[in-house]
Design a binder for these strands. Structure first.
Lengths: 196, 196, 196, 196
DNA sequence: CGGTAAGCGAGACGGTACGTCGCGTCTTAAG
DNA sequence: CTTAAGACGCGACGTACCGTCTCGCTTACCG
């Protein structure tokens, strides 16, 4: 057995308190944003002592990472039977997540934390991005099997390019097109379909 | 002239103090990072009163933006006579700026601020990214004239894709390749040279 | 000149705030007692930031000492023309100060602090007890001149004995007599009047 | 028998734990003093759960009172056959107890607690001071029988005066003489020996 | 040349949040 | 039914900065 089946002594940590603080974190994150988010406010909102938070997390970033992770849904692999159907589904799903106040705030938080805290970036990479990169590979392999794209395309690189342009255009809004259309145009360029 | 050429009454603002605070800001940004950067510390390091800073900038972001802007060099348009020569020059120059402690910190600061402060993102977009996008267009137009790439490629989109992957791979380090090589590979894919 | 007549640079400390915190300290001392007295509560009551208190005092004891000192009246030397008239005046005055809630609390605070903080004891000794010992000497010297007591009595020792029994009987209440009567009886014993 | 000789059901309270906590209390009292003495530290030092302490004592004062009481020796009535021999023995014994770090701390604790907690003062009065006052009476009665002092002196009052000056001079150090000499001088004054 | 107006450094101000510590209570499993 | 362990909600600690506000000075121009 890898994990010791012996319980640690003493009163076990309260699941209820833990959930309350994660929920309070997300609420406040959406309400006031990352910078103005204080542990004190989270504790107050959750009806929990500050020490109960500090017992579990050493810094704000860890807490937020955990809170975000807890609401993540499973990776969904679209399968419309057609490459652009799948891609549009992915883009729509991304748009749904990011193009609303809480989503924008969450993205800002993640990018903000990740760019100044490499450890956070790595956690996020492993727990969120990598699984999605795997899912995206499946989609592309199916497209290859259908001869919709060239067989030598590197799915990982394409996923990264897609994520990059998504992020970039979310932050800097470089175009007057809709975000979805811009991302779609970038992908079209990258995938240089054989049909063209 | 719309703006009055009359000088305002009273003592003029001290150029020396202004430069001292910009310099101190950059030093501390590199030393302690964006989050731990305090106006108090900047004032102390610059030998300047806090109010002298607040008279010029209303928030930390403005000050940092100005400080970063002050060290920006002019946009250099490489012209090696060959597309990949130009691109490699651009990548090298970007690497030089970003792949060192101050550079990383600067990028983190920009991304961090931009993602949570859309106004800042717009300022940065107009003052920094757009001029570079123009310069990049020149490079691509020259390549088109040399028939190195297809004539219908949108230089703006390509620049944005390049910037996106640069940013993304700087933050999340998705590959074991060097940053430069990864960016180069992404560009190669996007430009789908006719010569291949 | 011993004190430098140059003012220190920067904004001078607020007299109003200082007085507010001293007043709040005394109020709360009487209301909740020494142990339960928190800097936080003093700051809140005084409408003052905690840092404004910490800028002036390094510990609770210093603040309390200063607050108590600020309400001290001048030493009054009674002169009724007769030893026991003077002594009764002194005892009455002491009773008035100590035999009420605020007085008890103040004495408890002083004794408590003094017994665990020798520095505090010394301050209190110098600023409060010693002047009163001097005043008491004057009273006894007058009594000697009137031949009411023996000339070789040490006024300091007698003052200390009186203070000691006052303190002791205030804390431990060793008798059913009134506090004043007990103190008076002790003094009578010590002074062993010649008339006996 | 009024109290039932039936043992209470369940596990009996651990004598070992109880002794450990009393010992830890005294050690820490001497080491860090009354104010900085925390139940948490006592429990840790004694290797005992906090609740085991709270089951026995409701407040810190009770615990400390019990701990101090546990090291009290029986009242010793000196009998050197001569008043000043007896008195010097008493003063020496008091000096031995009070004039060392633990002793000073203990006195400070007692005075501190007693002055702010009248209940504690009464407990201490009954359990410690009153027995000693009785013992002192015996010494003085013997002196009266030997005609060393006047027959009408009130032994209780004299004991209280002695205790008062002991306490007072311990706290405020009003003289450059040794503590013992000062106490002796005060007693000499009070006893106004007939032999002088 | 003397006034007036703003900028300057210094630093105190009322605040807010920090992360830590100890409180007294509680909830476990072990004895 | 007690014990050791340790988590809980709570509240105060003393610190660090926030952005604002006096201070006494300096630097400019303007009448």
């Amino acid at each position: 057995m890898t994990d010791n089946n012996k319980k640690p002594p003493g009163r076990p940590r309260s699941v209820k308190s833990h959930q309350a603080m994660l929920r309070a974190t997300l609420e406040l994150l959406a309400e006031v944003g990352f910078d103005a988010l204080s542990i004190e406010a989270i504790a107050a909102r959750a009806g929990v002592g500050k020490s109960t938070i500090y017992r579990r997390y050493t810094c704000k970033e860890d807490l937020i990472a955990d809170a975000i992770e807890n609401i993540r849904e499973d990776v969904a692999i679209p399968d419309t039977g057609n490459l652009w159907g799948d891609i549009d589904a992915l883009i729509q799903s991304a748009a749904q997540i990011t193009l609303n106040p809480l989503g924008r705030q969450t993205v800002a938080t993640i990018v903000s934390s990740a760019s100044s805290h490499p450890e956070f970036a790595q956690i996020y990479w492993k727990k969120y991005l990598q699984p999605r990169r795997q899912a995206f590979s499946v989609v592309l392999e199916r497209a290859k099997a259908r001869n919709e794209i060239q067989a030598d395309l590197d799915p990982c690189l394409i996923f990264d390019i897609m994520s990059g342009i998504m992020l970039y255009s979310l932050i800097f809004q470089p175009t007057t097109e809709s975000w979805e259309a811009y991302v779609r145009r970038a992908l079209a360029l990258v995938l240089k379909e054989t049909s063209i």
